[in-house]
C-alpha cells in the first residue's frame, strides 16, 4: 500500500515536537519516580515471608520472577502464596509463611521444576540443600525445653532430626540436679522449611524461621581463627611464647 500513500505526511513543527517530547518525558518520569519510590519501599521482604526453596537472593529474585504463579500451582501442599498489592511482599511474587503452612520439602521440588525463568534456581539439586531461611530459637525464656520440660516437638518434626536441630544438654540451675535439653539449630544444615515453627505448641512459636540475612551474623572478613589457621598451616603461625626467666624476690 506504500505506493498509494500521499507524498507528504502531516508535518509536525519543531515546536510541536519539542512540546510533545517534553510532555511525554516529564509525565512518564513523574509516574516513574512515584513507582521507584514505592518499589524501593516494597522491596524489603517482611521477616515472616520466606521464598520457595532454591530461590535466588532477594535482589536477583525480584529481577527474575515474572509473577506467574506456576510454582504456587505446582505446590502440592498449598504452601506457596502470591503476594497481593499493599501486602508486605512484592506484588505477585511467591512466598510462604511457615507459621501457616510450612514447606514439606518434596524430593522432586515441583515448584522449582515449574519455574520458567530460573527465579527458583535449577542449581538446587537436592531439597536438603535448600536455604529458605534459618530456624532460630528466638524466645529461650518461653521455650518449654528451657523450663526443663521434654517438649522436644521442634526436634522431632525436623526433617533432618538430630542434624539440623539437636538437643544440647545443659544443667538445670532451677532444680540444681536436672538437665535441660535445649533445641539447637545448626545453620549449615537447616533448610528453613519451617516445620519446627509450625509445630511449636506455644501460643506464639518460640522457634521461628527467619530469612538468612536477618538470622545470620557475619564475621569480620579480616578475622582469622587461630586454631583453624594453625591446623591449616600444620603448626603455630607465630613463634613460641618467649620464656623469660622468672625473677623472684630474693634471687639475683
Amino acid at each position: 500500500m506504500a505506493a498509494k500513500k500521499p507524498q507528504a505526511p502531516r508535518k509536525t513543527s519543531r515546536r510541536q515536537f519539542i512540546t510533545d517530547v517534553g510532555r511525554g518525558v516529564c509525565g512518564s518520569s513523574l509516574l516513574g519516580l512515584g513507582l521507584a519510590t514505592y518499589s524501593k519501599q516494597s522491596q524489603s521482604l517482611a521477616a515472616q515471608c520466606l521464598r520457595p526453596p532454591g530461590a535466588l537472593t532477594e535482589e536477583e529474585f525480584l529481577a527474575a520472577c515474572v509473577r506467574c504463579g506456576l510454582c504456587v500451582e505446582a505446590c502440592p501442599y498449598d504452601t506457596l502464596k502470591l503476594g497481593k498489592i499493599f501486602e508486605p511482599v512484592t506484588t505477585g511474587t511467591p512466598y510462604f509463611d511457615a507459621n501457616v503452612i510450612p514447606c514439606e520439602m518434596c524430593e522432586d521440588i515441583p515448584c522449582q521444576t515449574a519455574c520458567p525463568t530460573g527465579a527458583i534456581s535449577p542449581e538446587l539439586k537436592s531439597i536438603d540443600d535448600a536455604q529458605m531461611g534459618l530456624a532460630v530459637l528466638i524466645d529461650r525464656e518461653n521455650c518449654l525445653n528451657t523450663q526443663g520440660l521434654r517438649c522436644d516437638i521442634c526436634h522431632r518434626v525436623c526433617p533432618l532430626i538430630d542434624e539440623a536441630i539437636t538437643l544440647e544438654i545443659e544443667r538445670n540451675t532451677r532444680t540444681g540436679f536436672h538437665a535441660m535439653f535445649i533445641p539447637t539449630v545448626h545453620s549449615e544444615l537447616c533448610t528453613g522449611c519451617g516445620k519446627c515453627e509450625h509445630a511449636c505448641p506455644l501460643e506464639e512459636a518460640a522457634i521461628k524461621v527467619l530469612p538468612l540475612e536477618i538470622a545470620k551474623g557475619e564475621l569480620g572478613h579480616h578475622y582469622r581463627l587461630g586454631w583453624i589457621e594453625k591446623n591449616q598451616a600444620g603448626g603455630s603461625l607465630i613463634d613460641e611464647v618467649l620464656d623469660l626467666p622468672d625473677r623472684l624476690p630474693g634471687t639475683k
Binding site: 521507584a36 518499589s39 516494597s42 535482589e59 525480584l62 529481577a63 512484592t90 506484588t91
Partner: peptide, 12 residues
C-alpha cells in the same frame, strides 16, 4: 526503571 532499580517496578 528495572534497569536502574534492578526490580520490575511496573509489575508492582
Amino acid at each position: 526503571l528495572p534497569f536502574i532499580l534492578g526490580t520490575m517496578a511496573w509489575e508492582l
